[in-house]
């Protein structure tokens, strides 16, 4: 089992000796793994990961987003079509967003959404055979942070890996940046990140810091944030 951990695999590699759960005798295969007859093969290049008791997946480096149900994404409204908005979430198809799936919206009280707006939303339907659908409310009808973002800031696109790295609780990027100065951030699993600092200068610095952190380790990130704060304060 230990031999599997963090091994680099390429499509077509056979993965044997999988550790199955002791009670159910089953193995859970995550993204990048597929079965053919009795064997398990990798179908994406990346690092093979394992989590106790029996979960396997491949951590891939990719730029193109493939919608997954329940993920938070940042979309751009591209079209208004009657009762729904078309939202570009970076996948192969545009997602639809109903005007009723905003907090407090009714048939009479329509949300104010314009073409070009940025929406932070959640994928309600993500299926390879169906058009993706996003909503800006949770199951209780609350916005819980989602909705149209119209307060300035800066939106940029990164690789999906960086987003996953930022969302990892072990990653110190957000914590170390937050220790230096206050800012707002919104991370979409589709590789889009929106940031807003107190000034434009800070916003740009934040965006650069996030992009630069892609291939850094935690100590490097801490050092980088420190340098960034110094530079912003005028010491350099």
């Amino acid at each position: 089992m230990a031999a599997h951990m963090d091994r680099i695999v390429l499509p077509g590699d056979k993965i044997s000796d999988l550790k199955e759960s002791e009670t159910s005798k089953k193995v859970v295969l995550g993204p990048g793994l597929r079965t053919e007859t009795e064997d398990v093969y990798a179908c994406k290049p990346g690092v093979l990961k394992f989590k106790e008791p029996n979960v396997y997946w491949i951590d891939t480096h990719q730029k193109r987003y493939v919608p997954v149900k329940g993920e938070h994404v940042i979309g751009i409204v591209t079209q208004k079509a009657g009762d729904i908005f078309r939202v570009d979430i970076g996948g192969s198809d545009q997602a639809s967003l109903s005007y009723l799936s905003f907090e407090g919206s009714t048939k009479r009280n329509r949300p104010d959404v314009k073409v070009g707006d940025i929406v932070y939303s959640r994928l309600l339907v993500a299926n390879k055979d169906m058009e993706p659908e996003v909503v800006c409310i949770d199951s209780h009808g609350r916005s819980s942070g989602m909705g149209v973002i119209r307060s300035g800031g800066f939106l940029f696109k990164t690789s999906l890996n960086l987003v996953r790295k930022m969302c990892n609780p072990q990653c110190v990027l957000m914590k170390s940046l937050g220790n230096k100065f206050p800012f707002e951030v919104m991370v979409g699993m589709n590789g889009r990140i929106w940031v807003k600092g107190r000034t434009n200068k800070e916003t740009v610095a934040l965006a650069n810091a996030v992009c630069a952190a892609e291939h850094m380790t935690n100590p490097q990130i801490k050092a980088m944030c420190h340098r960034l704060a110094d530079a912003l304060a005028g010491f350099e």
């Binding site: 390429l10 499509p11 077509g12 093969y41 179908c43 994406k44 891939t60 480096h61 730029k63 193109r64």
Partner: peptide
């Protein structure tokens, strides 16, 4: 295709 991370059966 490997760089893009597209799913493939084999190389």
């Amino acid at each position: 295709l490997l760089d893009a991370g597209v799913s493939m059966k084999f190389l």
